[in-house]
Nucleic acid binder design. Structure first.
Lengths: 219, 219
DNA sequence: TGATTTTTGTACTGTCTTGGATAATATTAG
DNA sequence: CTAATATTATCCAAGACAGTACAAAAATCA
C-alpha cells in the first residue's frame, strides 16, 4: 500500500524520462533532489537528531508529502542510506575496475573518498556508514544488514585490487591480499572518522600516503 | 558553582575513601556507578536518542539529582566521554609501556580493544569515540577537541611502539613508524565499526591477525 | 532540641515530536 | 464541462522532551 504500483501494468516498461502524463495534481518536488537533501541532513545530524520538521524544511515538502513519497522517518532514513551507497559505489566502481597500477588505483580511490567525506557546507560530512548507520546497526537489523553489506563490498573490491596486483608481480610473493584489503578498508574508515573531527585535508592526505606506501610494499 | 569544592579547604588533601562526614542529606547514589550507567546508555544510543528519563531510570537518580550531580545533558555526555577515555586509557597504558616484543604488544592491545567493543548486554557497544562522539564533533567544538585528543593519543602510543621496535631491529630499516602507527590506529577503528555491526569476534580476530602480520613485516 | 544544609521526590511548564485527518488545489480522463 | 485522481496546505492530537520550582526528607551542627 505504501509503495503502490505507480502505473497500471502496461505492456512494456517505458523508460521515458519525461512526462508519463500522471493523473492527479503534479508533484511540487523532484523525488531525487528531495532524497538528496534528506540524505544531507541525516548524514550531518544522525537519525534521532533529525526531525521531520527539519526534513520538511530542507526538502521543501510538507509532512504529508514526505510520508506519501518515502514512508515514515525510518524508511526515509533507509532510502537515504541506499542513495548514499549508490552514489559512493558509482563514484568508485570505475576506478576499481580500471586497469591501472596498484598505487595509482589506491591514490584515486582515496582521493575520491576524501572528496566525499570532506565536502559539505556546514562542515565535513564524513561517511554515512561509519558516522550514523553503524550506530543504528546494533538495534536495527535491516540497517545492520546494509552496513555489513557495505563493509564487505569494500573489502572485496580492495581484495580484487590486491590479488590482481600480486598476480602481476606488483607485490612480493608472500603477501596476503585479504589482509592488505582489510587494511585498505581500515584506512578508509580512519579517514572518515578523522574527517568528521575536522582534521584538515593535508593531514588526511599524509595518512593516506603513508598507508599506500606500506600497502604497496614500498620499503 | 557546578563543581564546587567538596570540602572546606583543609590543610592537607585527605584521600580518605570513606565518610568525610558531609553535611546534609546523604546521597542515594554513587556518582561513579551512576556515571558508568549513563556512559552505557550514551554509548548504546548516542546523544540525541538518550533521554533524561532513560538516564534517570538507568542511574536510579531522578532528574534534579542528575542536574545537581552532573549538570545538563551535554555536560553529562561530556563527563561520560571523559570517563570512557579514562577507562580505555587505563586498560591499555600498561601494555603500551610494557617491555615486550612488538607482536605480543599488538596482540594484547587488540585483545583488550575487542573486549571493550564487544562487551555489553544489549549487543556490542563499540567505541564511544567512533560511534557517537565523532558524530557530535562536527557541531560541538569541545567534543571535537576531545575526539582529536583521543585519536592523536592513540597514534602516538602506537608510534612509540613501532619506533622502539625499529630501534631494536624488530622491523626492517626502511619502515616508517608513523605510517605503521596510523595503520594500527586504523585497525582499531575498523574493528570498532565492525563490532557495532555485530560482526562476530572470530572474524574480527582474523582481521586483527592479518593486520598484525603486515604491521610486523611478517612475510 | 532546633537551626542549617544537602539531597530527594513530585509536579509542572513550555516546547518539540511523530504521525495523521481534513479540506483545498491542480491535473487528466471521458 | 464533469468526474476521478493525485498532490498540497493547514491544522490537530497525543505524547515525549529538557529543564526547573518547591516542599518534604535526612543528615550534621550548635
Amino acid at each position: 500500500m505504501v509503495q503502490k504500483s505507480k502505473k497500471p501494468p502496461s505492456a512494456a516498461k517505458i523508460v521515458a524520462p519525461v512526462a508519463p502524463k500522471r493523473r492527479g495534481r503534479p508533484r511540487a518536488y523532484e523525488p531525487d533532489v528531495a532524497l538528496g537533501k534528506a540524505l544531507d541532513l541525516f548524514r550531518r545530524d544522525g537519525f534521532a537528531a533529525t526531525s521531520l520538521d527539519d526534513l520538511s524544511a530542507a526538502t521543501g515538502m510538507n509532512r504529508p508529502s514526505l510520508y506519501g513519497a518515502f514512508g515514515d522517518k525510518r524508511e526515509l532514513y533507509i532510502k537515504s542510506y541506499q542513495r548514499y551507497r549508490d552514489d559512493a559505489r558509482a563514484a568508485m566502481v570505475d576506478i576499481f575496475r580500471a586497469d591501472a597500477p596498484l598505487r595509482e588505483r589506491l591514490e584515486r580511490i582515496y582521493r575520491i573518498a576524501l572528496d566525499i567525506y570532506l565536502s559539505g557546507e556546514s562542515g565535513p560530512r564524513g561517511c554515512f556508514t561509519v558516522m550514523t548507520a553503524a550506530s543504528e546497526a546494533v538495534s536495527d537489523p535491516d540497517i545492520r544488514t546494509m552496513v555489513v553489506e557495505g563493509l564487505t563490498e569494500l573489502d572485496k573490491a580492495f581484495g580484487i585490487c590486491f590479488r590482481h596486483a600480486k598476480e602481476r608481480g606488483e607485490l612480493p610473493e608472500g603477501t596476503d591480499p585479504a589482509s592488505l584489503a582489510h587494511l585498505a578498508s581500515a584506512t578508509i574508515h580512519t579517514i572518515a572518522i578523522r574527517a568528521r573531527a575536522r582534521v584538515p585535508r593535508k593531514e588526511l592526505e599524509a595518512i593516506v600516503k603513508g598507508a599506500i606506501d606500506v600497502l604497496c610494499g614500498a620499503k
